[in-house]
């Protein structure tokens, strides 16, 4: 197996709170290959955005502690100095955000902001940066790039802003793009356009993409592989088609079951997401799990590799059940 572009190993993120430390992320293993779109799915509050922030070292040092390794092209990013991280952010690893309305600085034009990112990483003159900026705006499908670049963020629509955010992210040809709920704040019609644009540009640039979302529909449309997160942990990893066909982990099954499908009854998962401050012993999903056996509440399950790119952190399910033969 070739070395992945990004490899997350034993990553933990612990927030300091008034009630003591709270661990919001605890991931054994998660990889993103070159030219691969990996979805990270979970309910809000499961820690998926924290994963994104910890890849770029964006957690404020006084508020959170990050442990483990985040290896990008053989280099561990955890513990790098702020100066070194700055060089990586925006150039090797770029990020787009959930709400493009708040992700742009309100008092500078989008052109100024785009050009500043270009000049920060690539240097060059104002004129060169401007030419590149217009090129990028055209690339993301903005009509009248010159006119748009002089606009302030509030003068543009949500879809336009997200397109420009993608232009900013792509401006320095990143190897890895992290997209944190990139379409959640947008209308459904715009969502499809943005996702298609992302997919098209991903192929064109050969980037690895980590797409963070709570929406399985987005995953189905865009991703190659998917990791399901629950209460700070990755509980299942699978190629997208496989996950939808035969989900392994009871939580993934629950997630799919709560998805509206024609001719099927909605079956929401019973119970509620556990409080990260008071996690249940053993498997974190056990209290809500229909398949739980007594050992689930005492033993903390590890990811079990089923082969064919599938794994799940559940001792109850077996390889045969998910259609993978040894």
């Amino acid at each position: 197996m070739p070395e992945p572009l990004l490899s997350i190993e034993q990553l933990t993120v612990t927030f300091r709170t008034e009630h003591g430390p709270v661990q919001v992320v605890d991931i054994e293993q998660l990889t993103v290959g070159r030219n691969e779109v990996v979805g990270l799915v979970g309910e809000s509050g499961c820690g998926k955005s924290s994963v994104a922030l910890s890849i770029l070292g964006l957690h404020p040092a006084h508020a959170a502690r990050v442990g483990g390794r985040v290896v990008l092209e053989g280099r561990n990013l955890v513990g790098l100095s702020e100066r070194e991280l700055q060089k990586i952010r925006g150039s090797k690893v770029a990020m787009i955000f959930q709400d493009p309305a708040t992700a742009f600085n309100p008092v500078f034009t989008v052109g100024e902001q785009l050009m500043r990112v270009i000049r920060t990483h690539k240097g060059g003159t104002q004129r060169q940066a401007r030419a590149r900026a217009l090129e990028l705006l055209e690339l993301v499908g903005m009509p009248d790039p010159a006119g748009v670049s002089c606009r302030y963020p509030h003068q543009l629509s949500g879809g336009q802003r997200q397109r420009i955010m993608i232009a900013v992210a792509l401006s320095c040809g990143p190897d890895l793009l992290i997209a944190d709920e990139p379409t959640t704040a947008l209308d459904v019609t715009i969502e499809a356009q943005i996702l298609d644009l992302l997919k098209q540009l991903q192929r064109q640039f050969g980037m690895g993409v980590l797409l963070i979302t709570h929406d399985l529909g987005v995953v189905a449309r865009t991703c190659d592989r998917v990791a399901v997160m629950y209460a700070g942990r990755v509980v299942e990893e699978a190629p997208v088609a496989d996950l939808f066909r035969r989900p392994a982990h009871p939580y993934s099954r629950g997630l799919l079951g709560s998805l509206p499908r024609r001719g099927q009854e909605l079956r929401p998962i019973g119970g509620t997401v556990p409080d990260l401050r008071h996690l249940p012993p053993g498997c974190r999903f056990a209290p809500r799990c229909p398949l739980a056996v007594p050992t689930c509440t005492t033993h903390d399950p590890k990811l079990i590799d089923f082969g064919s790119g599938r794994s799940a952190a559940c001792p109850v399910v077996h390889a045969e059940e998910v259609g993978v033969r040894d």
Partner: peptide
């Protein structure tokens, strides 16, 4: 504390520029 500051950091804008321009002007 606003989102666009974190976004600017994610774009690799140096802290000096963030303090002196991105946060100061607003």
């Amino acid at each position: 504390g606003e989102d666009h500051i974190r976004a600017a950091r994610a774009m690799g804008i140096p802290n000096r520029t963030i303090l002196g321009r991105y946060a100061l002007k607003p």
